[in-house]
């Protein structure tokens, strides 16, 4: 077995996330207002940051796809959108779990929550769209355009806590947070970034191999329907 870059980056990611989470759960003090529930911070915030960064990669790949029509960019759209949707889904689950003890409800149509939900639906729809279109060049173009359109919501989600009055807390500054809390958060965030990078690379390899095989076989005639030997009986 060949040692791939994603194995090393992935293992480093797991180690950093594990260290960050251990320190956030065991070493860091309870949050002043929320107590122990505030420890969800160390998993929720890195998931959010890295999820948005993954969508940014998808946006750049979509522009690259439209610019060059290369399979590599198309595979990167597929990989980064898929990883982004998984992180986005986790983000909503973690947020709902955190919301229950702090706000009293699992869900409310707050601007930050609503834009995050719109984000997972929009990017999830791109994965469905890719499954539904068989023609490679049409799939490539449509999913790239859809990714660019879906990305419009990403900066809106990020800025939603500034632009509207929300239940969700505003941006925090490291200057106002104890280093015993900032360090595990930063380490977990870097770990999550490495993990997501490894997953995107791996997913890109799988997608690129499939798209290349599909392109190589595109001149083949369609597979004939199987013979129905029982029809005349």
């Amino acid at each position: 077995m060949k040692i791939r870059a994603e194995y090393i980056v992935g293992m480093l990611g797991i180690a950093l996330v594990a260290w960050g989470h251990f320190n956030g759960l065991v070493v860091a003090p309870p949050e002043a207002m929320m107590g122990d529930v505030g420890r969800i911070l160390y998993v929720h915030v890195p998931t959010a940051w890295v999820g948005l960064a993954t969508y940014l990669v998808a946006f750049i790949a979509a522009i690259g796809t439209l610019w060059t029509s290369k399979l590599g960019w198309d595979a990167m759209v597929e990989a980064s959108v898929e990883v982004g949707v998984i992180l986005n889904g986790l983000l909503l689950i973690q947020g709902s779990i955190w919301a229950k003890p702090t706000w009293g409800v699992f869900w409310t149509w707050d601007p930050r929550l609503t834009t995050s939900a719109v984000m997972v639906v929009a990017f999830g729809a791109i994965l469905v769209l890719r499954k539904m279109i068989d023609q490679p060049s049409r799939r490539m173009t449509l999913s790239a355009v859809a990714t660019i359109v879906a990305f419009v919501n990403v900066p809106i989600t990020y800025m939603s806590v500034k632009w509207w009055r929300t239940l969700h807390q505003n941006f925090s500054s490291p200057e106002t947070v104890s280093s015993t809390m900032v360090t595990p958060l930063r380490v977990a965030a870097f770990g999550m970034l490495f993990l997501a990078t490894a997953m995107v690379i791996r997913r890109w390899r799988i997608g690129h191999a499939r798209l290349a095989a599909e392109a190589a076989a595109s001149d083949m005639p369609p597979t004939p329907a199987p013979l129905d030997l029982g029809a005349g009986a």
Binding site: P29, P30, M34, V37, H44, I97, T102, L195
Partner: peptide, 24 residues
């Protein structure tokens, strides 16, 4: 091991981390 206005809630923390690690 708690503080702040919300007492307990460790189950919510375990659930959030458990789901995240399991899915990833």
């Amino acid at each position: 091991m708690s503080g702040g206005y919300i007492q307990g809630g460790v189950g919510f923390v375990v659930l959030a981390y458990g789901i995240t690690w399991s899915v990833l």
